[in-house]
Design a protein around this nucleic acid. Structure first.
Lengths: 198, 198
DNA sequence: CCTACCGATCGGTAGG
DNA sequence: CCTACCGATCGGTAGG
């Protein structure tokens, strides 16, 4: 990671610390040590510990949204009205966002609970909208007979939960590359939703 | 929950607090307040905060193991050599253990990282053994042609990750009962692993 | 199970 | 970005 600003370096360090030890399990001095400054000096760059968390969660949410927008647009262009193809693109995009920054993804998934009420509500709304992409695609797929008769809301939650778990086990140096993981997940999710009379 | 001992009441209170706010985000005084005693009085019943976490994680692990043992034994008895049936039983058992105590399940899934090195290693071994049940069943199902050609390790991780996410969204007063959720998950997981030429 | 208390650490501020 | 420092809270102990 090439940091352009000190502020970004702090957020990057905090991201992996929050991911590894949780927000409550990380002190501002832990973050400061990771960027080689004194604990109190952190406040020359950030206003509070919670503001750092909010910045991380915000940028992570934006990355997921941007990637999903691009994936859905590309899928609609390549194969209009094909929810199977669109779902595959969405899953693939998600896997790559996670793999690009496991810390951010993990914090986005687990640590938003530590935000204050307003910030938490805002991020929950974005999470809901993101999950709705999956649900709507499933509903569309059922309507056109491409998917079997699953409960769309439950299926969307299960798929997203499986995707959200990736930061807890993904290893950049592991057996499978992000691309291969995406391939497998596209297959697993595809079959999970498949119309049984295929 | 009917508590037989004060110790159990403390663990139950700690379980839901750890689940809601995390281990680091919960103070011993938070736990004490939940059982209406002074913070320091907690130490008349437990030796340390970490010992409470360990007790919760231990009992949760045992519940998952006992339920999986029973499910696999019953499945082997009902339909010997049928990995599809065995997988369904395993998934169903898991869902019910989670639904029976969402707090314990959530702590088991997320908070074991806060344990000391020895306890953490011990619980990791039990988690690995539990995941291996799923992996072995998938390998068996592929061998007998009941499942498609998925990557067994990856599929087991994805399934378990989806199951592990249940404590984060399950609501006892929600739209779906634990039984219905189990039905749906059995179907989703079954299709996910299905031999494509069914 | 309580009161009283311990040293350590917490997030954050003042003033340079 | 540093030193010096703040009040609050942390997990835990002593002694009853």
């Amino acid at each position: 990671m090439v940091e352009t600003t000190r502020r970004q370096a702090i957020e990057d360090a905090a991201s992996s610390l929050f991911h590894e030890h949780g927000y409550s399990g990380t002190s501002v001095r832990d973050i400061a040590r990771a960027v080689d400054i004194q604990g109190a000096s952190l406040y020359a760059h950030v206003t509070s510990k919670e503001a750092v968390l909010q910045a991380i969660v915000d940028r992570a949410a934006t990355r997921f949204e941007v990637a999903a927008d691009a994936a859905e647009a590309a899928a609609a262009n390549e194969r209009p009205g094909d929810p199977v193809h669109a779902m595959a693109a969405l899953v693939r995009a998600h896997v790559h966002v996670v793999a690009d920054d496991v810390g951010d993804a993990g914090v986005f998934v687990h640590e938003w609970r530590s935000l204050g009420p307003e910030a938490r509500d805002a991020i929950l709304a974005r999470r809901d909208a993101y999950e709705a992409r999956f649900r709507h695609l499933i509903e569309e797929g059922i309507a056109v007979g491409a998917f079997g008769l699953v409960d769309p809301a439950l299926a969307a939650t299960v798929i997203l939960t499986a995707l959200n778990g990736i930061p807890t086990w993904y290893d950049p140096d592991g057996r499978l590359t992000a691309d291969r993981i995406a391939d497998h997940l596209v297959g697993l999710v595809g079959r999970m939703l498949a119309c049984e009379t295929l």
